[in-house]
Amino acid sequence: MAPASGIEVENLQRTFKDLTAVDGISFAIEPGEIFGFLGPNGAGKSTTVLMLTTLLPPSGGRASVAGFDVATEGPDVRRHIGAALQEAALDPLLTGREHLRLQASLQGLAKQTRDARTVELLERVGLTDAADRRVGGYSGGMKRRLDLALALVHGPSILFLDEPTTGLDPQSRSDLWEEVSRLARDEGVTVFLTTQYLEEADQLADRIAIISRGSIVAEGTPDALKGEIGRPSLEVVPSDAADRERLAQVLSEFGPATAAPTGAAAVRLEAGADGLAQVVRRLDAEGIGLNTFDLHAPTLDDVFLAKTGERLADEAVA
């Protein structure tokens, strides 16, 4: 049988009373791909995930997950997906092991295989030692890892992760990234990932879509998106600190100023990297000596700003 394990979305909509949360979005995700769905709070990310996981009926449009229609073939969709949704839905009174057994039983795993699967998943997410402690005493990172393990109990071919690392410390975050990459690479799991962290999308996703106010405003590989709008930024430290003001003045001729560390000045180069030679000539002509002179490639944040007119990075530098 092996149904297609991709996702196809066509003109999907969802309205709540007079609010349009998702306004006719379309995209397709290939089997085995990690797809990053990027947007600020309230952009429609979670509503999309709820619709694709059959937890919320769409108001219009069509979506199929693993080859099944989300509106009419809910039970078939659910059989093929695993989901770790925003607030890790865990019961503080149950232990980690009990959660996994419960999930295994909910998914209809045969009794004989439940314990083995539980042990295997606990090991994989590094919760073996904490398995018999109540979840009420787990840290945020442990809860997320347990949530991920729960989503994997029945070996789904498609995994939905709704802001899986929000509120995690950097170490827990990179551990989780590691595991998600491994799943896609080694097991061919399709991953639909929503995030407000640009770095997360950049590192993990094969392809990303940016959603803003219910509509998709950009879609492509991270590199393609950055290349499409990409203008590098230039960060310069003068050899004489007293020249900083004058330096900033000169740089402003080449584009808008951007944030820079103390003692440095930075600018987004309107002309791209090609304008570099001209900058050097101007600084030379002004007699400003240079200490460091760094060109930064464009980031997803630049893409985001260009596409939505909003900046995401402020929230994301948590």
């Binding site: 039970p75 997906i81 607030e87 839905a89 019961d91 999930q103 909910l106 209809g108």
Partner: peptide
């Protein structure tokens, strides 16, 4: 309220 019901709604075929 806590979202645990989602776990049920997601994994229950019926």
């Amino acid at each position: 309220e806590r979202g645990f019901a989602r776990r049920y709604m997601l994994s229950a075929p019926r």
